[in-house]
Each structure stands twice: as structure tokens, then as C-alpha cells.
Design a protein around this nucleic acid. Sequence first.
DNA 1: CTGTTAGCGCCTTCAA
DNA 2: TTGAAGGCGCTAACAG
Lengths: 338, 338
Amino acid sequence: MPSIKKVAEIAGVSVGTVSHVITGSVNVSEPLRLKVQDAIRKLNYHPNHVARSLKTSKTRTLGIIVPDMTISFFPQVIRGAETAARERGYSLIAVNSDEDGERQKELLSLLRSQRVEGILLVVAAAPTPISQLTLILDASIPMVCLDRIPDRVPVDSVSVEDEDAAEMGVAHLIEMGARRIALVTGPPALKNERRRLQGYKQALQKAGIPANDNLIWRGSLRSGDVADICRQGLAGLDVPPQAIFCTNGPAALAVLRVLRERGMAIPRDIAFATFDELTVDDLFSPSITTVVQPAYDIGFEAARILLDRIEGKAEAGAPITVRLPATLKIRDSSKIRK
Amino acid sequence: MPSIKKVAEIAGVSVGTVSHVITGSVNVSEPLRLKVQDAIRKLNYHPNHVARSLKTSKTRTLGIIVPDMTISFFPQVIRGAETAARERGYSLIAVNSDEDGERQKELLSLLRSQRVEGILLVVAAAPTPISQLTLILDASIPMVCLDRIPDRVPVDSVSVEDEDAAEMGVAHLIEMGARRIALVTGPPALKNERRRLQGYKQALQKAGIPANDNLIWRGSLRSGDVADICRQGLAGLDVPPQAIFCTNGPAALAVLRVLRERGMAIPRDIAFATFDELTVDDLFSPSITTVVQPAYDIGFEAARILLDRIEGKAEAGAPITVRLPATLKIRDSSKIRK
DNA sequence: CTGTTAGCGCCTTCAA
DNA sequence: TTGAAGGCGCTAACAG
């Protein structure tokens, strides 16, 4: 692999001159510039970013840790972040934590060793020790949390407006005529899930419907657990609910499976709505009424903030908190037969 | 950010000694080792991979270029590759080409500048000039192509056994009683698509069904095009086909949309099967009979080969060609009403 | 405008 | 077993 020295030699100039034409930081006379560019082409030379980074102590690289990029929400987030990064000349390294706190720790460490200039983090659901995050912050490595917001850590964050989003979904079900609405949430350890629960309660309250604890089914991220909890919830009721609202996609799939196994048809026997798109478009039935999160925008916005921090364009001081609105896609699953 | 020098200072040893305990390449006495590890912890020191890479000219990093990781096939591929890489101490940088040849060229160049030790490539559908690939190969940067195999370039490759897979899907439709089976393929510029077409013909031939060119609808990767071609194909026929087989997921969605717009129900009016999962499980109807590619394994296997090349464990000489079998998931969409 | 050179942080002989 | 020192490829002063 040719080095800048080789290029200089071929072009008959000094390495300094080559460097100047590459970085464009210093003017170089037309004839020399052409000679250098020729040599570069001839050698198929690619500047060594590793060496450049060592010299400048800038890698122009960002890292993003997501739980699992086979969950369709995350690739969209990554694309958003990638686009924002690229627009400003940065690359993005995306890695998966598998919802594993230990793995997340390793990845954080790896990214630090790779000297990424900033980190985008969707915290793993496994209880993340606060120290993992403060260690990063203390080292003044810029970090923005997205989607899931950790408790009690003063860090920049971007996510959907959870409470409003959940309220919107539940209010829709109410509007469609449901009053007994069950809620299936994820682990209460996640702040977002708690806020979505809040949104649910809010919607009920505004409609003057008393909350009923038997209708609040707290799940986990494991679909087996969610299914069990759902079965129990259903079994513990004399009258089944008129509708179910799920606060996340994986839980929704588990619930749908349970409903099918019990022969309950949607929306004939029970109405249904959920966070997150479960399937493409509305080509399949039942088409599911969905609270859609702006995944791409969340990634884009988070990267934008991160880059502002890195380049010192953001005010130091209080953490930046961005909450993006969700969209309600009304489809068949919430059409209650009166 | 502390350097090895700082660690040495705190531990009261030389940088050489610190390096020795970090790499484990040279024995260091117990007491000194402990002192060093203490210092590392105290400083929250993270070895600078950038400097290490420059020194050793090994980045222990792989790159993977996919067309678009929001297409669910690709994150699985990436996960497979990531796992294989991690098992052998490598990191993986994943980037998107957006099916754009120009962008792909930039990314290749970027990865070279980042000094990745090998490249996994799913070529963009836009005609990729062969030179783009040979330029990499000529620089003896190990590269493995996956999923889509470029024509006329002697490069390692991993993909599904296209011909068998397509034949399996079509044979199934025949077995279900269809004889007039339309085929919707992607761009013929992709070798895989051509091989899938071959598989289709093979299945017909084995069943003694004459091929009919009016039933072969050659599409592109743009869903609008596919829809048009599908409409035209349907319109040009006196009798609609009894079944449609699609050679890729995006095309399948376009076709389903057209069928719906024409009020043709699956499988009542027409049977249907396709490459690639369109939706999760079989929770939705019509549940689609699918030829499933081993996406994770394709990624894993490709990375394994790449690493073998990098570490000189693979025979030089002829390119390695791995073809993995697909699986047929039989669901409702292919149940022809006799 | 062009060339020279120090040094980024680390690993790896080589010597002690 | 430990330490000293060169140099990976590049950029950014600085000198000419």
C-alpha cells in the first residue's frame, strides 16, 4: 500500500506538498498540484486515515450501539444517524449489544479504544449500571442517548414523545368505542415504558374511565414472558377487554400470538393497537393500527446533536432533550364492531 | 485521554513494560504486572487502537457494504458477519450504498483509507464497473462478495443456491396444482436473478410444462417498475396465471399491491410464493409461502472466508464459492383451491 | 509557494 | 525480566 512518501517521490515533490494538495489546507501551484494528482491516480493511493488520525487526534468517526439491528426500528435509526454523520464528513460504526449490559460495556470500551469522537447509545434493557455511562461522560466523550432514556443520568437524549404517543393510541381506541382497554408494556425499568404507561392512564382519565390495575400487564423484553403475562391477564378477567394496546412491537407480536392461540379474532373479538410497525404497509390482515415512531429522524437528530457537541457548537450546560412526535396510522385492527 | 506513557509513569515502570502487559506478548513479573493493571484502572486507560494500528499495520477491522440495511435481509447478514468477526477478534464497519454505484465507489475508497483488512460486499444493483472490484483485488485487499455475485470477476463469493431455491419454490406451486405460473424477477443484470429464472424454467421442464415467455416478467429494483410490469403482464393475458412466483421480497410487495388493486385474492384467485420473508411469522394473512435464504449464515460464512484469507489460512488460487441451501416455508398463499 | 521536520501513541527489536 | 529507542504515515508549524 503506497504511502504519501511514495506519491511525493513519483510526483517529484516533497511530502509536505502532497499533504497540502490532499488536505487542501495550503495553496499549491497548478503544475505541482496536477503532478501530485497524477501520481495519486497512478499509484491508486488512498491516504492512511489511521496515520492521519494519530497525528490530528481526530478520527472523524462516530459509534452507535443498538440492542439488535435485526429489529426493524434500529436500522432506520442508524440510517438517520449515518446520513447526518456523512453530511458532516464523519463515518459511523454500528454495533449490537444484544440487550446485554456486559457486552455493552465491552463495546463502549472498544469504541473508546477506536477513538470514536462521540457515541450514540440505545441502552441495553439489562439494567445498565450508571457508572458505565458516567465513565464515558467523565472522560468528556460526547454521548447522546436515543430511544431509551436512562434514569438519573444527565445526558443528551432524543426519543419519541412517549407519553403523548401512548395517549394518542389509547385515545383512539377509546374513540372507537372501547372502554375496557388492556395495556401491555415492556419492562418498567425502562423510563420510556413507564412514560407510555403514563400516557395510557392519561388517556383513560381524560375520557373519564377509571383505571383498572387488572388491565395493566407489565411485561419484559422476552416474548415468552409477555405471552405468559398476557395469558394470565386474560385468564384473570371475567370479561375480556374490548381492546389491547401494546407499548412496543416485540410485545405486540407475542400478544397477537396469544390471541390467535385463543381463537380471538381482531378486530371482531377484540380491538388492537400498538407502538411500532409490525408488517409492511397494510397488505396483510389484520392490518394493525400503529403508533409510528420517527425512527430515522430520531437517529438523524441524535447525530446532529452529537456532532454539535463534538464541534463545540452546542451550548455547554444542561443536557439537550429532544422529544419527537409520533404518528398514528389508523388501520383495521382498531375498528370495533359496535 | 491518557497514553501509555502516563500509565508507565503512574505505575513507575517503562512504557515497554506497560506494552508488554497489555499485549501479553512478553512475560512480566507479578508485582510489576499488578502495578501496571492498577494504573490502567486508575486512569481508565484505553489503549489507542489508532496508534497500535499504525505501528502494526493491522486494524483488525472488516468492512461490509450493503445496499440498504433497512431491508430486513441485510441486518441478518451483518449480524452473521459481525459474529464471525468478533469470534476472531475483529470489528465490523457496516455501510450502505443505496444501490448507487458511485456511492459504492466512495465507500470502497473510504474503507481502504480506513485500512480495513478485508471487505464484504453486496454489489449495488446499479451496474458496477468491473474496475471498481478489480482495483480492490489488484491491491490484494481480501474481498468476499455475498448475496449478489458479480459477473466475470474471479472473487470469493457466498450466496444462496439460487437455482435450486427458485426451482424448489416453483416446483411447490406445480405440486399444488398450478401449471400456468408467472415469474416476476429483478433486473437481469444481476446474476442471481438470472439463475433464479433458470431455476424456474428447470422446475417447469421437469414437470413437462412448456415455458411461456408471456409469463416471465422481468422487473427492476424499483417497486414502481415492478408494479407496472406486473400490470402489463396481467393485461397481456387472456387467462390470468394460476400462480405467481417472485424472486425477491421488494418485488413481491409490489406484486401483492397490484393484485390487491385488481381485487385478486390470494390464494382464492391466484396462488403466490416468493423469495424472502415479507412479514413476521404467519400471524398475518394471507400468510405467504416463502423461499427463505439463510441470511445470517451467508454473512457468517462470508466473514469466515474473508478472515481465512486475511490470516492466510485459505489456499491461494481459485476463488472460493459457497452456495447455501434455502428453505421452503409452506403457508397459505400457495394453497390452490382445486 | 515549497520543503523540512517534529512528533502523534504504540509495539518491537535489541541491549542490559 | 526490564528499559531504551526507532519508526509506522501523516499533518502542521516553520523556514526558506
